[in-house]
Structures are given as structure tokens and as C-alpha cells.
């Protein structure tokens, strides 16, 4: 089965929905696959826990729901605790090491990788690009979308004057993903 399910989670304001959107766009527009993104709406999504679901497939996607993700991104402790405890052992779990203590659940999944995305973003002078650093990390660690596609999707989804900053943030995350951990 070529179907890949992804959940990106965190809290409102971290750019979680945008991250899900960019992953989907990279797959659908630039990698020429099919992608479906869904998210929670309404007042419930304007603060507190927040998640975006993306399904990527070579085939037509009928069921848009993410039930057993192959990739989980968790940018908050609450999101991690909620979602990581439900994923399979094969699931790749990506966390921000400063925001998430992976041992908070009884069984840390073997494919858990961490990056200090927010700290790195602060070093770059823009805390808001933490999600883009995470996308670089995501692209490098999972290969679910190609590096080129992700980069194009990022550049085409942010305001032009921030394109360069975001591209650098992406590269930062990608580079770290390639280092041994």
C-alpha cells in the first residue's frame, strides 16, 4: 500500500495547520502524488491543542481520515501524550526536544527523533520558523515528500519577503536530520 498517514500536532499559534498544508502541497503539487489534508475547525482550534492530518498516496485517496499514522509530529507535550501513545511501533515520531519529554508515555516508540526546533528558530532570530525547521527535519527523516517538493511548497506558501528566511529554516532542519542521532 502506498498510503502514508501523517499527523502534525501541537498547540495553536505554532503553525501546525500550515505545516500540514505544506506537507500536503509538497506531495500533491510538486511530487505529483495525491494528498488530502484535514484539520479541526472552529473555536476549538483557535487555542490549545491543534492537529492537522495528511494522507499521501500514489493512488486516489478515498478515506481522508488518519487512523494509524506512519508519521507523527508533536510540538507540544499534550499533543505528544495524546497521540504518541496510540501510534504503532513502526510510526516515526518527530518531536521538539525542548517542548516534549518523550518518556512521558509508558513506551517510547523506537523511531522517535528529536530536534530543538524552537531553540534553533530563536537562534535564527525568528521563533515563528520553528515549524519550518521541523518540516526540514521531517523531509530528511521520513522521505515521505522529496526535499525539492517540500522546499517549493514552503516558498510558495509564505509571503515572498519571508521566502529566504523560511528556506534557510528548512535547510537547517534538513541538515540536522542527516546527522547521526
Amino acid at each position: 500500500m502506498s498510503r502514508t498517514e501523517i499527523r502534525v500536532s501541537g498547540f495553536g499559534g505554532q503553525g501546525i495547520i500550515l505545516s500540514g498544508y505544506i506537507i500536503g502541497k509538497a506531495a500533491a503539487i510538486y511530487d505529483k502524488k495525491n494528498a488530502t489534508m484535514t484539520q479541526a475547525y472552529g473555536p476549538e482550534s483557535r487555542g490549545g491543542a491543534c492537529a492537522a492530518q495528511v494522507v499521501i498516496s500514489e493512488q486516489e485517496i478515498d478515506d481522508p481520515e488518519v487512523s494509524s499514522p506512519q508519521v507523527l509530529v508533536a510540538m507540544s507535550q499534550e499533543a505528544y501524550t495524546t497521540f504518541a501513545s496510540k501510534v504503532s511501533d513502526e510510526c516515526t515520531v518527530l518531536i521538539d526536544e525542548d517542548l516534549v519529554d518523550p518518556t512521558a508515555i509508558s513506551k517510547v516508540r523506537p523511531q522517535t527523533f528529536s530536534i530543538p526546533a524552537v531553540r534553533l528558530a530563536e537562534e535564527m532570530g525568528k521563533k515563528v520558523v520553528a515549524n519550518i525547521i521541523m518540516l526540514g527535519f521531517f523531509a530528511g527523516k521520513t522521505g515521505v515528500v522529496s526535499r525539492e517538493a517540500m522546499e517549493q511548497a514552503i516558498v510558495s506558501s509564505v509571503p515572498p519577503r519571508f521566502a529566504e528566511l523560511n528556506r534557510k529554516a528548512f535547510e537547517r532542519g534538513y541538515d540536522i536530520s542527516q546527522q547521526a542521532q
Binding site: A28, N34, T36, M37, T38, Y41, I61
Partner: peptide, 10 residues
């Protein structure tokens, strides 16, 4: 419907 309206695809 809400899912179709809010779902993002190509």
C-alpha cells in the same frame, strides 16, 4: 458538507 468544504486537496 463540512468535511468536503474544509478538506484540502489538489
Amino acid at each position: 458538507d463540512e468535511v468536503v468544504g474544509h478538506m484540502t486537496e489538489k
